[in-house]
Structures are given as structure tokens and as C-alpha cells.
Simulated scan of single mutants.
Amino acid sequence: MGLSAKGEPAIVKDETKVDVSFHLQPGSLIVTRGSNAFEAYHASVEFVDVSDGPWLVDKARLTAKGPDGKSVVLTVDLLNDTYDGPRAGVPASIWKVVALASTTAGDIGITYATPDPRPM
């Protein structure tokens, strides 16, 4: 291969966004939009740093197979319109995807807490 590397990779302290992606077990998450059901097989969760506190989760992108068998990307906005708390009405299974991503994010030093569903 002819590749060499050295050093200790680290995330830039002033980085404001980090994406954590992973594959989902087929059939483990079905997302319904209207009358169409989509079988998610990949998730990407975007974390944002808006202060010195824990990172917030901004979006979840799910790559899924649609009813026609073609792949689509479904984006779920997770922050409310004022960016100070979680968006109301997000299904619990999407927050479980976020929890999976936060485990991986913790491995790279991002601290994340599940949002409080009470109004701020």
C-alpha cells in the first residue's frame, strides 16, 4: 500500500459540527411518512457546539429503502426553531438513533445529554 502515518489525531477545539454515521440492522427501524414506509439502513447524526456546555444534536439523516426499493435520504430536524431545545413530536425511535450516535461521539470527546422534553 505504501502508506505511512504518524501523530495523534485530535478534533479541532473550535469545531462546531461533527457527524457520526453508522449502519442499522436491516428491518430494525421503519420510518413512515404519509402512507409510505421506509426501511432505514444507515444513519448520520449531526452534533453542533453552540456553547461551552454539552453538544446539541441538530439533525438525523436516515438513508432508507422506499416502497419502490430505491434509496432515499430522510432528514429529521431535531432542534426547535429557536435552537434552544428539542423539536416536539420527534418519535422515540429517532431519539434512540441519537443515543446510539452519542455513544460513538463520546469516544471522541463529545459530551451529549438527552434533551429535556419540557419547554424551556
Rank of each mutant, 00 (worst) to 15 (best):
L56N: 14
A105V: 04
L78A: 02
T16G: 10
D19Y: 00
D68L: 03
Y112L: 06
V20G: 04
A64S: 12
Y112K: 06
T82A: 02
A105I: 06
T63A: 12
V57S: 13
G109N: 04
I11P: 06
D107C: 07
A5Q: 07
I11M: 09
A101Q: 05
F38M: 08
L62Y: 03
L74W: 00
E46F: 03
G85V: 05
S35F: 11
G109L: 00
W55Y: 10
R87P: 01
V90I: 14
K17H: 14
G53W: 00
D52R: 14
H23A: 15
G109Y: 01
L78G: 07
V57R: 13
S71P: 07
V31Y: 04
A92V: 13
T16P: 03
Y41L: 08
G85E: 04
I108T: 03
A43W: 05
L79Y: 07
D19S: 06
T63H: 13
K70F: 09
T63M: 13
A99T: 12
R33C: 12
V57K: 11
V57W: 10
A60F: 08
L56Y: 13
S28N: 10
T32V: 15
G7W: 07
V90K: 07
R61L: 13
L100Y: 07
S44W: 13
L3V: 09
A43K: 00
T75M: 04
F22Q: 01
A5L: 05
S4T: 11
E46P: 04
T75L: 00
D84G: 08
S4H: 02
